Simulated scan of single mutants.
Amino acid sequence: MQKALETDEELLLLFKQNNNQQALATLYLRYSELVYGTCLKYLKDAEAAKDAVMNIYTELLQKLPAQEVHHFKSWLYVVVKNHCLMQLRRSKTATIVEFQPTFMQSADLLHLDDLLDKEAHFKMLEQCMEKLSDEQRMAIQLFYFENKCYNEIAAQTAMEWNKIRSLIQNGRRNLKICMEQHG
């Protein structure tokens, strides 16, 4: 005849060592009224509380093997409380909101805004380029728009390398000032 397991610790150990679900069921039944009462207190609905009692047992099957539990009753109470709070949180966040396109910007419109901003920026750049001296405009054009290096520009224009560098630096500074003045 097998000795009756009395303590929570013995039942818990039997479950953990042998995956004995009967031991866990016996232990859980000891506290089923506590579990149900706690669920009812938080969920305020008898059917939801009954469902939670069943779900918590399933949760215990998964959680207990990895947990170090010294006082089953207090640990169980925390599990039950957290389960109920998660249920309440899920029910609050599960509200359905009707989609209203007038409240949201379309990605297509944002892309169009970007294109319009770039186009306006480019037009302003063209206007500022017209305000540069001929030499600065030509040096900027060759360097930035045609991707030529200082040596290539010097060879093409028969200007000295230092003069090209000076034209590009001064042209950039003048472009920046012009662009800042025009927004």
Results as ranks from 00 to 15, higher is better:
H70C: 10
L29D: 15
M104C: 10
D113I: 06
C149L: 07
D134V: 14
F72M: 07
N19D: 15
L85N: 07
E9N: 13
M124Y: 03
A139W: 04
A48Q: 14
E47G: 13
N170H: 13
A155R: 00
L85A: 04
K176M: 05
F99P: 04
F145M: 08
A49D: 10
K50L: 14
L43Q: 06
E68A: 11
R137E: 09
L112D: 10
Q22S: 12
N18M: 08
H111F: 12
F143L: 01
T102V: 12
V80K: 02
G171W: 03
A94Q: 05
S133C: 05
M124T: 11
T102K: 03
Q21P: 05
V78L: 09
A155F: 00
L109I: 12
L132C: 06
K148G: 00
R165A: 08
K176P: 01
A94N: 07
M138S: 09
N174W: 00
L13E: 13
Q181F: 04
K16T: 05
F143W: 06
W75H: 05
L109R: 10
Y28W: 08
A154P: 00
M1Y: 05
L76K: 02
E135P: 01
E10F: 02
N162D: 07
G183L: 06
L34N: 12
M86F: 12
K163L: 07
M1Q: 02
V78A: 09
D134L: 14
A4F: 04
D117R: 13
D134T: 12
A66K: 15
K3L: 00
D113M: 11
K92F: 09
S166Q: 05
C84Q: 02
F72E: 10
E59A: 13
L27C: 14
P65W: 15
D51R: 09
T7V: 04
D108K: 07
E146Y: 05
S106L: 08
L112G: 01
A49I: 11
A120Y: 09
Q2M: 08
D45F: 12
R30M: 10
L88T: 03
N147A: 11
S133Q: 05
I96D: 07
R30W: 08
A120C: 09
K73C: 05
F122A: 15
Y36I: 10
P101I: 03
Y42P: 04
H182C: 02
T95A: 10
V80M: 06
S91P: 00
Q136V: 03
A155E: 02
L40M: 14
Q100K: 15
F72D: 06
L5T: 00
